[in-house]
Computed example of a mutant assay.
Amino acid sequence: MSTVKPRKQMEQIAMYAPGKPVEELQRELGITHVIKMASNENPYGSSPLAQQAVQNEIKNTHYYPEITAPVLAEKLAAHLNIDKNRLIFGNGSDEIIRLLTRTYIEENDEVIMASVTFPRYKTNVIIDGGVPVEVEMKEGTHDLQAMRAAITDKTKMIFVCNPNNPTGTIVGAKELLEFIESVPAHIVVVVDEAYYEYVHTDDYLETLDYMEQYPNLISLRTFSKIYGLASLRVGYGIMHPDIAGELLKNKDPFNVNRFAQVAALASLDDEEFMNNTKTWNDAGRRYLEDECQKRELPSFPSHTNFIMVDTKRPAEKVYNELLKRGVIIRPGHMMGYPTMIRVTIGTEDENHLFIKALDEVLQLQEVTERG
């Protein structure tokens, strides 16, 4: 046993538990056909333009990448119609979260977040010595009124995941804007918009329109989801240039690799791929919601590429039985929802296979419960 002691904050931290990899399940159960509907990856892959860009970049493998991804910054800024000095890129938007807490959170600073949301907020706050203040949700949605009431003189930062992971819900545009307006200017408001491209309502706040008015407002986005570049790890933050400058002091020099930069750059040219993904995802979401409704299995209203469904049975058991049938999902018992499962919206075939497997699992459990 090692006698080297970690920082006291590490006592509260557990290793992040990702969705089970396909290869791991294949090895464990000796099955070949596995569908992964656990990690909110794009089931349609990534843009062919991005794939070709990565192939072309192989010849430059021996070179370090440019530190601030200036070519990508220029193009993305034009795409979003913002000043490029507002952008900072990370090894996934996870890194931007870490940079924010490392830069702004001091010992005992409080950071407000929802009780069921992306876990890396809480983890990074604890590691950097801060105190996470978790506010109970209301029907799977952020309770912004309660979050506003939780602000104290120790509050330094607030995270709002919109759409929220793992529930898929959003807060309305007017409600979110009123919340941002009500937060004191010295408190950083981080709106994590990793899934914003999937939103299918007009009642959604375009935070970029308010960056100038609220210098404490930050938006996080990523190329991992709708663009399908999850393995390359490239996320970005949009914020006041002064905040971006502070984060750059903390950033590892070569954090976004060459392949990630060129793939993200090329992805911006393939609007057809993104539009097709959204169209297919919308159809898949409606199918899964309808099928669950037929089975009287309620779900949260989703604005993402996943849905969270109440199976009315222990989520861990449902998860394990689905694994035996080659279907990987995320059980809700680890997220505070003991009977719910989170399911990534797959291709048409994957969605049908999931429903078929779910029916088998639910029928099996009914038989078991009857004895």
Results as ranks from 00 to 15, higher is better:
Gly332Phe: 01
Tyr104Thr: 06
Glu11Gly: 04
Met335Asp: 02
Ser46Val: 05
Gly228Arg: 00
Asn275Cys: 02
Asp252Trp: 12
Thr368Phe: 11
Tyr210Cys: 06
Glu197Ala: 15
Asn164Leu: 12
Ala50Asp: 00
Val34Asn: 09
Val327Trp: 06
Asp310Pro: 13
Arg148Ala: 14
Gly346Pro: 09
Glu23Phe: 03
Ala264Gly: 02
Glu28His: 06
Tyr104Cys: 04
Phe179Met: 12
Pro65Lys: 10
Pro119Glu: 12
Val188Ser: 02
Pro18Gly: 11
Lys154Gly: 08
Glu136Arg: 15
Glu348Pro: 03
Ile180Asp: 06
Thr304Tyr: 12
Ile13His: 00
Val199Pro: 00
Ile82Gln: 00
Met37Gln: 10
Glu66Arg: 14
Leu220Cys: 07
Ile341Lys: 02
Arg330Asp: 07
Arg221Glu: 03
Ala146Arg: 14
Asn257Lys: 02
Leu220Ser: 03
Glu197Cys: 04
Gly235Thr: 01
Asp310Val: 01
Arg102Phe: 08
Pro338Asp: 13
Leu288Asn: 09
Ile158Trp: 09
Phe300Gly: 06
Ile226Asn: 13
Val343Leu: 14
Ser219Tyr: 02
Leu248His: 11
Gln9Phe: 00
Ala357Ile: 10
Gly284Pro: 11
Ile82Thr: 08
Pro18Ser: 06
Ile158Glu: 09
Pro6Met: 10
Ile355Lys: 01
Glu291Tyr: 15
Ile97Lys: 13
Arg148Cys: 07
Ile307Val: 15
Leu87Tyr: 04
Val171Met: 08
Glu136Met: 12
Tyr198Gln: 10
Asp290Pro: 05
Ala357Val: 04
Gln26Ser: 05
Glu134Pro: 00
Phe159Glu: 07
His240Arg: 05
Lys278Trp: 04
Arg313Leu: 15
Ile96Gly: 00
Ile180Gln: 03
Tyr121Trp: 13
Arg98Glu: 11
Gln12Gly: 01
Pro163Thr: 12
Val191Asp: 00
Thr304Asn: 10
